[in-house]
Structures are given as C-alpha cells and as structure tokens.
Design a binder for these strands. Structure first.
Lengths: 343, 343
DNA sequence: CCTGGCACTCGTATGTCCAGAGTGCCAGAG
DNA sequence: CTCTGGCACTCTGGACATACGAGTGCCAGG
C-alpha cells in the first residue's frame, strides 16, 4: 500500500502545523496545543488519531510516551516538498541585500559580505563557495620579471579572481622574450576556459628560439599547475555563533558540527552534490557526513550569467524555518550573481 | 606594604602548584590534593595557611566555602611572569611544523596552514593576521587592458600578496600609453614602501601627453586607494571546534567568544596591541573586549626578516597550559617567518 | 467518521537527606 | 616564630522519594 494514500488533506495539515509549531516553540507539540493554535476544525482526539497514523508512517516521532510529537527527517522532507513554498523576501530585505552587497570592493569582499549577510538573514551558519575556476575563463595572464631567472606569473579570471605563482626558470629570461610570450600567451588563452588552455598552448614552445624553450615550458607548466590546483575550490564560512542559539542539545551536537565545518573538504561536498537549478534542501540523515546528521543544509547555485559557477547555502538544525531560509538563500544567490555579472 | 613581600618562596611554589593542578584537572584544588601530588615538604595545614594569604592578596579564589581554590587572573599573571618558562617544542614537533608549512603553495596557503597548525598544536582557537601591507613594499604594479576605457590594476607586494582593482578611465587608453605608464610607474614605485609611493608618483601625470593625463590620474588614485584600503588588515581564524572542549561553563562563555571571534575588528585589536618582541599574554580581564573576559590571548609578532610584519596567536580559556601554548605560538611564528623570508 | 471522557504512562520538578571534601582555627611541639 | 595534627563547621552534589501534569490511547456513543 502506498504510504501517502493514507494521508488525506487533514493529516497533511496536521503535519504542517506540527512542523510550524515545533520550529516556533522548539518543544514537542501535543494534540491539545495544536487545536488551540491552529483552526483545524476538529477536536484534539481526532488530531490524536491522525498523529498516530503519521507516526506509524514515520513522519513524526515521540521522544517518550508522555510527550508531544516531533517531526522526523522524513516529516520535514514531506513538509519541504509538498506542504510549503519558498517565502519571498520583503521589499525591505531585498533593499538591504543589494545595499550591503553593492559596497563590496573586490571579489574577496563580495564573498566575505555574502557570508555575513546570509548568516544574519537566516541566523544560521553560512557557507559560500568561491566562484569555480573550472567553469571560469582566463581573462589575462601576466608575467612579471623579478630577477633574471625568476618570473612571477599572475592569472586573472573572468570572475575577478587572481592567483600568482613564482616561476624559477632554467635559463635567463629577457624582457623582450617575456613580452613576446605574454602577448602570444594571452592571444591564445584569453577568454578561454581553463580546461581548454593546455591544448591551445601545446605548440607554443616550438615557436620560440631554442635557448628559450625550456623557460617557456617551465612557465607554461606552472600555469597548468595553477589552473588545476585552483580547481580545488575555496569555501568561506561564517556565523558559527548562531550555533549557540540551541542550548538544549548542547554540546553534543555543536562539537561535531564545528569540526565538520572546519573541514574544507566536507564543506565542499555539502554544497557540491546538487546539480539541478533551484534551492536544494538536504535534511538530517540525508547528509552524507555523520557529524551533520542532526542538521539540514539549504543550498543553491549562483552564477554571473545563466551558468552556475559556484554554490552557497546555510547549515542549521533540522528544526529550522525552511520557507524563510530557502527564500533568503535564493535571494542572496540571485543578487550575488548580479554583482558578479556587473563587475 | 608591598604585596609580594608576604609571598615567600614556598607560597609561590604553592601558587605554581595550584595553577598546574587546576590546568590539569579543571577542578578547584584543595590543600590535601596539593600535598599529595606535589612534594612540598610541608603538611596540608601549612598549605592551608599559605592559601589563605594567597587568597587575601587576590591571587587565588574560592568558588564557595567548602571548595578548593582556583587561580584568579592576577594569579595566572604572576605565574606567567615569574613562576614558569616558555616550554620549547620537542624535536618531533619542530619537524612536524616545518614539514607542514613547507608544503604551502602560496601566501593564502601559508596563512591557512598556519591557522590549522596552531589550532592543532595548542588545541585552541588560532588567529593569524595576514602580513601587514603598511610595512610592505611594492614589488610590482601591473596594468591589464580590459576594454578601451577599462583597465585592471594589479598590485603585487613583497610578501606575495596580490590586490586587484578595476579602473574606469575618463578617456581611451592605448596599449602604448599603458605600457609606458606601466614601465615608469614600476621604475619609481617598485621596492618602495606603501607610504612613500604617492609622493614618488606625484609628478607622473605631467610627463604624459595632455589627453592622457586624466586617465593617468585616475589610475594613480585607484592605486593610492588600494594601498590605503588594504592597510585594513585581514585576519584568519580557525579551530573553533576546540571551544567545545570545555563543556562545563557552556554555553555561557562560548557564545560571546564566537561572536567576538567573528568580528574582524575585534580580532585585529586582540593581536594589535602588542609592541615589544617576544610572546605576549593577555589574561582574562586584561582583555579589552568584554566577551573575552574569561579567555586569555597568547600572541606574538612574526616577520620575514627582523621586522614584525604581522601577528598571530591563540585564544583559549584563562585556564590553559601557558608554558606549552607560549612555546607553540613562538615556534610557529618563527617558522612562518622563515617561510616568508624564503619565498 | 468524529467526539468526549477516562485511565494510564512517564518525564520533570521539588524536597529531603547524607556523605565527602575542604576549610579555619587552635593548642602544642620544635 | 613557624609548623603540625586535630577538630568542628560549612557547603555542594548526588541519591532517593514523591507529586504533578502533559500527553497519549482507547472506547463507546452520536
């Protein structure tokens, strides 16, 4: 028998009410309290029966016999999927977002501000991934002579990110040759995607004088290295102080969460698994990482154009205000995308 | 009467023992336990009398009548100043430090690794300031044409830090003029300290053709802006999970600490106030910031040469292993300095 | 199918009590 | 003058018992 067959509209309304109340009060909610606070049009006994069914199906759960009910991960899932809608931001909030982000001076600042903004809006831990380099294109490559045999390589991406590397060349590198290399390198690589750059530059060394080829090759391989290495994306996190707003399951739950959040790898995977557009919610045990089994992740991709270049999101207790959080995350992503497109 | 007159060697030994035991056990320490664990050569009654004096002078304190003693901030201060020495790192630890830091690929990575290392070594919250730009010199300024009227300005410092700005010029900027500007700009500014750059470039616009002067001025003012703006230093923090190792005064103490640590400004001030060389310790209420009144900060400057270019340190409970922490902080600072000097 | 009522469960809060740790003080010894 | 052993006193924390109340499940009747 398909489970949801047993859930008529009223039972779903009861589940919705339970989630809403529990998120508000942070305490298990009983049948009496439900009929008081929501106009369900039926008595508490009826609600009790509905709750019994909901529990049987695994949507809610009773901490102990004489307590109210609490939504399970499955219950939140149903709530998110079918019982609610993303709550749009108010005009004032939108204005605050643009206003705050517009004052950013460079990419680092955009990311830093985004983190703070998300953390404040959702009152949760915010996570923002730097615009991905894999999908980025090269805006410019600059070569700066430091000593006769050392060159600084500066890579500038279309998202405004800058990476630099010191290159130790096997031979002397003259100003003229360097200028030549710079010009030709940019002629071929500028505007291209990272992945394509190596093939595009493959035959570049051959076009140089014999004594310079070794140096050219060294410079190029450093460039490739930088391209690949920077594909390990960076993630910035903030708002950890918000974790302290839940003093009841402290510190059982906060310690593993903090640990997880300090691991770049974990953070990346948290955000990384989504593919489809739109806000993604991963609830409790749906999370791969153990330490985050009692938390939910709300994330979404953002990009300067239509394409998603990176993701951002928040991490909070499974007991969170999903509609509001989803709305905030979506709105912030949208505006960050606009900022990136404009710069 | 000078207070320390009343503190003979044995009383100091008692204080030292109290601090050591309290740091180890995290529990108030009584006279009995003291004579058991340390060979003081006197009876518990004598120790009790000494403790009474120490309490009278404000070095220790009794949470309640029938409890042992706990050091006060003043007690820790005396301990740090006179009763202990910085504990040097073991050979294995030194090797681990160099090994870990040697694998850094760029400045960001050095800082990131330093934070992780410090947090792990001390098992506390680590704070690392980026090498200060105020004391830095310009290594190179690069100008990259984006569109006919837009230029990207890239500033590279001797510590390897890179900052970029987009410049919107009032008129067209030709390749030739740009190359000219680049050359002359670097000829004057490279190797110079930030503060001196504006004066050195003061008469540069005049040397250009009339129609280019406005653009040159715009580029220069953006450069000055970047120089000044980046004097707001950046700070990276990590190891917050270590805060959860003290579950007893939770979450009363952890919330304000996390909040404080998320404020860049507060972090900077935490590190910023020290001037003299050597490890600095600020204990409990010696800290200006309220939220950190029950924590201590151990910090030290580091630099690529003899000069201090930035600071790093850790934040932990006043009840911490001062000798060990001071040793770790000092050692890490030293090795980071070496890495910076080498790159 | 809904409702009111009732018996039952169980967690939490409250109150009492006891043991143990630690202190302060005093009188005597060195 | 300083140290020591002894003793009476204080106070916290844990154990135990009890009462309360929120909440449930079930049943019979509308």
């Amino acid at each position: 028998m398909p489970e949801e067959r047993r859930l008529d509209d009223r039972k779903l309304a009861v589940l919705r009410a339970i989630v809403q109340d529990y998120v508000g009060t942070e305490e298990p909610v009983g049948s009496k309290a439900l009929v008081d606070r929501h106009s369900l049009g039926v008595s508490s006994a009826t609600v009790r029966n509905d709750m019994a069914v909901l529990e049987e199906e695994g949507y809610i759960h009773q901490p102990h016999t004489s307590a109210g009910r609490v939504p399970t991960d499955k219950g939140y899932r149903l709530f998110v999927d079918r019982l609610t809608e993303v709550k749009p931001m108010s005009v004032a909030e939108r204005r605050a977002i643009t206003n705050f982000l517009d004052h950013a001076v460079d990419l680092d600042d955009v990311v830093a501000r985004t983190v703070r903004l998300l953390a404040q809006l959702t009152r949760q831990v915010a996570v923002v991934q730097y615009p991905s380099l894999t999908r980025s294109t090269v805006r410019h490559v600059e070569l700066v002579p430091l000593t006769p045999t050392r060159v600084m390589l500066v890579l500038i991406t279309d998202t405004g990110r800058v990476e630099q590397r010191i290159v130790d060349c096997p031979g002397q590198v003259g100003e003229v040759m360097l200028a030549d290399l710079r010009t030709r390198l940019n002629a071929r690589a500028a505007g291209q995607r990272f992945a394509e750059v190596p093939t595009l530059l493959q035959d570049l060394p051959e076009t140089f004088a014999l004594q310079d080829r070794a140096s050219v090759t060294t410079v190029l391989s450093t460039l490739y290295e930088a391209l690949v290495e920077q594909t390990e994306e960076r993630v910035v996190m903030g708002g950890t102080a918000n974790l302290t707003r839940f003093p009841h399951d402290f510190p059982l739950t906060i310690a593993p969460v903090l640990e997880a959040l300090e691991e770049q790898v974990v953070l990346l995977r948290l955000l990384g698994e989504t593919a489809d557009p739109g806000v993604m919610v991963r609830i409790g045990h749906e999370n791969a990482y153990e330490g985050l089994n009692s938390t939910s992740v709300v994330s979404v991709g953002y990009g300067s154009g239509e394409e998603t270049v990176a993701k951002l999101g928040v991490v909070g207790p499974t007991r969170m205000d999903y509609p509001g959080t989803m709305g905030a995350v979506r709105a912030v992503a949208r505006y960050v995308g606009q900022i990136l497109a404009a710069s």
